[in-house]
Amino acid sequence: MISLLERLTGMHTLTDQVIAMDFMNTVKSGIRNYAMAVTEAATPEVQSTLASQLEEMLDLHERIAEYATEQGLYHPWNVNEQIDVDLKNIEVALKAPNL
């Protein structure tokens, strides 16, 4: 449950965004690793399995990006909007109480 303090400071949105962006970055890292592994696979069977996993990771990345975009947390096609979101997040983080 989101606390009153999180709502008043805007931290609940920042928390959602941090989770979504962290998840997306983790998936991107997995995509890079699978892509490298596919090119180094020793057998066609292993290559096929890795390529299948790579496809699943790409689909997952798309789903996360769509969610973040729909929630207004991520603006991949508009740099100015993304900069505005990032600047607002910086302001919220700077105003957050030091615990």
Rank of each mutant, 00 (worst) to 15 (best):
V27A: 00
V27F: 00
V27C: 02
V27M: 02
K28L: 07
K28T: 09
K28W: 05
S29H: 14
S29P: 02
G30W: 01
G30Q: 03
G30D: 03
G30A: 07
G30P: 00
G30M: 04
I31S: 01
I31G: 01
I31W: 01
I31A: 02
I31V: 13
R32V: 07
N33W: 04
N33A: 15
N33G: 06
N33D: 13
Y34R: 00
Y34T: 02
Y34E: 01
Y34H: 03
Y34W: 04
A35Y: 03
A35T: 11
A35C: 10
M36R: 11
M36A: 06
M36Q: 09
M36G: 05
A37C: 08
A37V: 05
A37H: 02
A37E: 03
V38E: 00
V38A: 02
V38P: 00
V38Q: 00
T39F: 04
T39D: 07
T39V: 07
T39R: 13
T39S: 10
E40W: 05
E40M: 08
E40F: 05
A41K: 01
A41F: 01
A41P: 01
A41S: 07
A41N: 03
A42Y: 06
A42P: 00
A42I: 08
T43G: 08
T43L: 12
T43S: 15
T43H: 10
T43P: 02
T43F: 09
P44W: 08
P44D: 14
P44T: 12
P44C: 08
P44G: 11
E45N: 14
E45P: 02
E45R: 12
E45V: 13
V46Y: 09
Q47K: 15
S48M: 14
S48A: 15
S48I: 10
S48L: 14
T49C: 13
L50T: 05
L50Y: 05
L50R: 04
L50C: 13
A51N: 07
A51K: 04
S52D: 11
S52P: 03
S52Y: 12
S52K: 13
S52F: 13
S52H: 13
S52T: 14
Q53H: 15
Q53E: 14
Q53Y: 14
Q53R: 13
Q53K: 14
Q53N: 15
Q53S: 15
L54H: 03
L54Y: 03
L54M: 11
L54P: 01
L54A: 04
E56S: 12
E56G: 10
E56V: 11
E56Q: 12
E56R: 10
E56N: 10
M57T: 03
M57W: 05
M57Q: 06
L58R: 07
D59F: 06
D59T: 08
D59L: 10
D59A: 11
D59E: 11
D59S: 09
D59Y: 06
D59R: 09
L60V: 05
L60A: 07
L60Q: 03
H61S: 04
H61Y: 05
H61G: 01
H61I: 02
